[in-house]
Amino acid sequence: MSGGAYTVEIRVMPRASLLDPQGQAVQHALQALGFGEVASVRAGKHLVVQVQAATREEAAAKARTMCDRLLANPVTEDYECSVSP
């Protein structure tokens, strides 16, 4: 097989040690709706990238480079990538 199209799903989240005011605002709204059981909400980004690569590993490596250089800010965010198929 000479490579093909891969879909990379990238999850970018604010670092756990940093204040996430967006997540807090959503948490308060959920509690106001009656979901008193909500203990915490954190809000991040979900990106879906279609990429051509020789192998699944290469697609994952490319996605990590994209995250390091642009999609996530190394000062404030962490990311996870999952490749399919």
């Binding site: 604010p14 940093l18 204040l19 005011p21 967006q22 605002a25 800010n73 000062v75 404030t76």
Partner: peptide, 10 residues
Amino acid sequence: PGALMRNARL
């Protein structure tokens, strides 16, 4: 150095 994030009270 550093970064600028959403205002604490949004």
